[in-house]
Amino acid sequence: MVDEIEDNEEEQTAPRRVSIGGDVILIRIIALVYGMLAFISFLVLIVDLGNIGFEIVQLIGIGVLFTGVCVGIISVWFTTVDFENEKLPSPSSIMIMISVALSTAGIIMGMWGDGRFMDTGEMNWLRLIFVGIVGIFFLAFIEVSHSSKHFTSIAKYAAEHSLAEFSVRPVITNYLMMSSLKFLLITLISVAVLLSDRLLKYIVGIINPQFAESIMLNSVYSLAIMIWIFAYPLVVILLLLSGRAKAREVEVMAAEHEGEFAEMST
């Protein structure tokens, strides 16, 4: 047993190769695409809804948002870390946070004081869907930017400490597949939540037509009510399910391995 371990000494000390640039580059490109899509769709939204008559604050807002997206692009594309003679992409967390902050500020200023961005009653369902899609693009930009950093740190750590062969490529492939599916699901649920605002208004209109025409149900407050109605029970149910599944899994694993461990220890 000792000899067997010692024989592998050479394998343990062999230098590791990282080479994840090719794998992560795809993630970086996707992050940039999402960032640009978010920016362009935002422009489309305010041009469509604002009817071009911009105020100075809104123009500044567009500029701030553009700056935010640019900071994000620089963060994703140009910040790297040196590791074993290789430059690995590693977006700076501070830059990502600045990018998010600037983008949020840009959104606020870009829609500043325009009633058509304040009242859901002013929007038809198609525009409401488009608003949801813009939100998803921003979210996807944040998520994928962060993931490029995450995969870099995994590959670095694996190269430094893991003696087993570890390739980050299947992990990234799996991530791309699963994240695409999940983002589709997220988009559908988000749009459903946004559109259920209309359903709420319809139901309330039957019960109390006067309340259905109130500011409460024709502004962003109705969306807050929808978040409450949808998110709260969903989160509670999912947390309960997740907790139960986890407990069951541990029991199963323990029972499965108990016999084997006992055999090995003897």
Binding site: I108, D119, G135, L139, V193, V220, L223
Partner: peptide, 16 residues
């Protein structure tokens, strides 16, 4: 700020 886009973004993040 009564901003629909930010509300939509927060909905997306919670769903995410």
């Amino acid at each position: 700020f009564r901003n629909i886009l930010l509300m939509a973004l927060s909905i997306s993040i919670f769903v995410y």
